[in-house]
Design a protein around this nucleic acid. Structure first.
Lengths: 219, 219
DNA sequence: CACTAATTCAATCGACTGACTGAAACAAGG
DNA sequence: CCTTGTTTCAGTCAGTCGATTGAATTAGTG
């Protein structure tokens, strides 16, 4: 059962995942064929992706999962660090740093942020990410801690802002990653990105909600 | 020269644009073929898109342009309304309302927001939108007015926040539009979306920038 | 009515897609 | 050495893609 040879398969799997992630980020999810992924991964065979992962959706899911665990660990660590506290900024850090620190760990260049942004924007593939990555226990815990710091907001506004924060983190990192790749920079400076994001998000969440019905602009 | 028949071509063009916008929003930009667009537009011919618009990129550009002018007009009107003023909120309204009001004008259901979000996220197609829609004179004026209200921010942080705001407006509207379409709601309540966005963005922009180098979290 | 130009249509091109197949190469255990 | 199961490979399949072509249709103009 566990014979044959494990290491070779593992290397091939990893090569395919790396090639897929890069191609997806650079050319777009649906502009990349399984053939191309296999080829770039060094597998002369066009069926390598199919053998190791199955369908294209399965491959995308695998790339996503590859990053889910490291980010989850960072989030859990940060969560322990600010347990019992009630400083809004600490909770925001628990939302931002798992992404930025993980991107920093990946080295330069990275492709995951652009990959994730496309995934979340695609009308059909987005279902993958909401089932898998979103709504993990730790994410739920962070959101709960965040809510405790925002008693002045109604549940509707809170949900609205949570979504804004999610969009902000993912797409800001993706834009930054792309800008870095275009400029060919070696120093990603993800810490600075995280700092800017945390500042902005704290301001966004603290903002007072004027739910006054806005009148149409007179023409 | 101007003979043949204009009205028929105009109707067909409009039908193709409408079908394309809807299909792009619902299924993803690259998951929709020109054939399908022609078919859904009522043109039994698979070459209708090619004849009226050229390549697929040209079609996408045409859909984008279709909405650029109305939004530009709304933005110009709002710009006149807050000329000479220096209230941050007024300038933020100039960024948000062109989108939300235009979406409200489109009626329910609308597809433009989802279309635009995908367009801006795609690694190759995003070049279209930056050339066309972004950086129009009115957008530039709004950004300048906005900057005048944010003297406490460094140029780098200002640029960072501008980009965040852009991402926030587009993707929040797209998410809302999709949620509405999924729920089949009749009342889009774009005014409420605009109010929520303006509140959040004002808070985001007012946030103080702590550019302190964040230490790595101890493991 | 005949002419002209714009528009629609049907058919086709080479290229590529995802998915599948059976055989070859491979590395272990017996 | 030989068997066993895993992995890689080359080849193929029907289907779809963007794009092009030339003929049929349409509607104004002279």
């Amino acid at each position: 059962m566990a014979s044959g040879r494990a290491p070779r398969a593992g290397e091939t799997r990893a090569a395919i995942l790396a090639a897929a992630e890069r191609l997806f980020a650079e050319r777009g999810l649906s502009a990349v064929s399984n053939r191309l992924v296999s080829e770039v991964a060094g597998q002369g065979n066009n069926a390598a992706v199919g053998y190791h992962f199955g369908t294209k959706t399965d491959l995308i899911r695998a790339v996503l999962r590859e990053h889910a665990l490291p980010m989850e660990e960072i989030r859990a660590r940060l969560l322990r660090a600010c347990a019992g506290r009630d400083r809004l900024r600490d909770w925001v850090v628990c939302l931002v740093r798992p992404v930025t620190d993980h991107l920093a760990d990946l080295g330069t260049p990275s492709w995951y942020a652009r990959f994730a942004a496309q995934l979340m924007t695609d009308p059909v593939l987005r279902g993958i990410v909401v089932d898998d990555a979103l709504a993990t226990p730790t994410v739920r815990a962070v959101r709960a801690g965040l809510d405790r710091c925002l008693p002045h907001l109604s549940p509707e506004v809170r949900a609205e802002r949570h979504e804004m924060v999610r969009l902000l983190v993912v797409h800001t990192c993706a834009e930054r990653e792309r800008a870095l790749a275009d400029a060919g920079l070696r120093d990603p400076a993800w810490d600075a990105v995280a700092a800017g994001l945390v500042d902005a998000i704290v301001g966004l969440l603290r903002a007072r909600a004027t739910r006054a019905a806005p009148a149409h602009v007179p023409s």
